[in-house]
Amino acid sequence: MADSPIAVEHHNPALKHHFANMEQQREASSLGMWLFLATEIMFFGGMFCAYLIYRYWYFPDFAAASKSLDITLGAVNTAVLICSSLTVVMAVRAAQLGKRQEQVVYLALTLVLGLAFLGIKGVEWTSKFKEHHIPGPTFNFEGSVPGHPDQPVDQHHAQLFFSLYFAMTGMHALHMIIGVGIFSYLLYHAWKGKYTPEYHTPLENSGLYWHFVDIVWIYLFPLLYLIDRKK
């Protein structure tokens, strides 16, 4: 890198010493975030792999267990997350345009929507607890295979479905909780006016994370809630 731009760009307090300029720093952070998301794909991928195999093996029992999930709550939660993705996008846009007020509003909305998602998830989990659909010694699933009223559901296989359900939605919820933490931090700094059109990398990268968590749910919703609803 030539010397002159370094001298000019050093005025930006957010520039770290080992980068030549803001552009290089921003591109490095962005690539870092995308690589991190690649690891996240593989992390959830392990569970998707388990899900795929057991669903292939025990399809009728999985369909029955899936039917016991509340499709309304699941669909509402999907919509909540999609709305939160929109508010994140708008917050990033506000930062790009240097509108602090808007930034704060959209970040606050994102937080509210994130918490709403977790709240609805909590309601769903509580009802599973009451219905004894928690894997373990007390597990009990009553019902028959969809389309075959006289064929009872295999307890073990239904339990396997709920093991995966709790592992996957639990891991997803954990990511949401971390996301809520990150966005609280962002909200505080946005309030302080830290993110400007020149420097808002944390906002941008956290946005990428939030969208990723949204995408995981976009797949979880049909895979867990909609296995076979037609009968």
Binding site: Y54, Y58, P135, H156, H157, Q159, L160, S163
Partner: peptide
């Protein structure tokens, strides 16, 4: 959880 448990499928 029973994901690798052969007694539960």
């Amino acid at each position: 959880l029973g994901i690798f448990d052969p007694t539960r499928g």
